[in-house]
C-alpha cells in the first residue's frame, strides 16, 4: 500500500520547507525536502534534499532559483532538515551541507 505524506512547514512568514514523502508499507521510497524563500515572483527554492532515482543528493539554488550546484548527500529525515533550516535559515545556501 502506497502512502503519500505532504507537508508545508512555515519557518517564518517568508520561509518554508515543502516536504513530500512516499511510503510503500513502512519503507520510505521517495523524499524531497525543499527550503524555499518568498521572492517577488513567489516561492523560490534555496536548498533541496531528495533521493530521486535512488540517488540521495542536495541541490543549492541562487536567489532567482537557478541551480548553483548539486552534491551527493546521505539520506535525510524531515526532522533533521527542519532542525538545520531553523538554525541556519538563509545562511544554508552558503554552507557546505553534504556532510550534515
Amino acid at each position: 500500500m502506497y502512502r503519500l505524506r505532504k507537508k508545508r512547514i512555515y519557518i517564518r512568514k517568508n520561509e518554508i520547507i515543502d516536504s513530500l514523502e512516499i511510503y510503500e508499507g513502512e519503507k520510505r521510497r521517495f523524499y524531497s525536502y525543499t527550503y524555499m524563500v518568498k521572492g517577488k515572483k513567489g516561492w523560490v527554492p534555496s536548498v533541496r534534499w531528495d533521493n530521486f532515482q535512488q540517488q540521495p543528493h542536495i541541490d543549492r539554488y541562487d536567489e532567482s532559483g537557478a541551480l548553483l550546484e548539486q552534491k551527493n548527500s546521505p539520506e535525510k529525515e524531515l526532522e533533521a532538515v527542519e532542525h538545520l533550516v531553523k538554525i541556519f535559515r538563509r545562511n544554508l545556501v552558503a554552507m557546505s551541507l553534504e556532510d550534515f
Binding site: M1, L4, K7, R8
Partner: peptide, 11 residues
C-alpha cells in the same frame, strides 16, 4: 492508488 496525508504547519 495511494493514500494522501496533507498538513500545513506553522511554528
Amino acid at each position: 492508488g495511494c493514500e494522501i496525508e496533507e498538513e500545513i504547519i506553522f511554528q
